[in-house]
Nucleic acid binder design. Sequence first.
DNA 1: TATTTACAAGAATTAGAAAACATATCTTTC
DNA 2: GAAAGATATGTTTTCTAATTCTTGTAAATA
Lengths: 141, 141
Amino acid sequence: MFSNSCKYAIRAVLYLAIHSNETQKIDTKTIAGALEVPLYFLAKILQQLSKHNLVSSVKGPGGGFYLSEQNLEIPLQKVVESIDGEDIFQKCIIGLPNCDSENPCPLHNEYTQFREDLSKLLKHQTIKEVAENVDLNGIRF
Amino acid sequence: MFSNSCKYAIRAVLYLAIHSNETQKIDTKTIAGALEVPLYFLAKILQQLSKHNLVSSVKGPGGGFYLSEQNLEIPLQKVVESIDGEDIFQKCIIGLPNCDSENPCPLHNEYTQFREDLSKLLKHQTIKEVAENVDLNGIRF
DNA sequence: TATTTACAAGAATTAGAAAACATATCTTTC
DNA sequence: GAAAGATATGTTTTCTAATTCTTGTAAATA
């Protein structure tokens, strides 16, 4: 479903949502250690997210990545789109170019149902909201 | 979600379900042409399916691939599993090793819902049943 | 206050692994 | 002997990973 890059991006953003703020920046090494993902690979992903203004960063001593109040209001979908492309949820599940409700493939309806469920979560909930859920339910990442 | 190989496999099997039978074999070239997929790549996939006894084949002149009555009773899930592995539907959507209902990741519940929907289709419906739906609704592949 | 120094992100390059795609040869069957 | 799958090998492309160098910032120091 998601690429590895995208999985790491989601986890990193949620991690930052919980552990960072304007005055509490976190460097790549710490994040990579906490999530147990490849350091340099994660660094690249964070740079991509930074370039898209989905996470904030400060260079230099005491610097690192963090989520600003603005960042926290972004829907999680933006993170997914910035890594895996905007059409990840629009493509046919078995790869047909012209699969839609008019010409559905055999799996179209089941898939559409899911797509809407997950899309609802990603599109309408902000990073902040998802992260708050994480806190509440003792969810791990 | 599915690999290209798996997408091609699903489409090829459904194509065979509709257009072939014991006396009506279809050669790789024809299938690849109909589905507009790479010939030699598809050939390899069909051989994998054949080795797993998910499709039937006959060599020599007039030979080709087809689905036996037995093949038609196989759930589509077997096709997916034989190409993309058995655990494709059991893995956490953001890659956490110990994500389950006890320790759910933030997307766990939404994903579980989908997994069950799609799994129902793949596991409990035979290739024959899915293919019949295709015929009924003028679905394309 | 100006300058140095260290730290951490940014950017570009290289390398390795895996997936996708292609070809050639062998084997079976008609 | 010709047709068609089976097998084995080869190439290309994409994805993932690692390295190195550059740039910017903060803190220390003279």
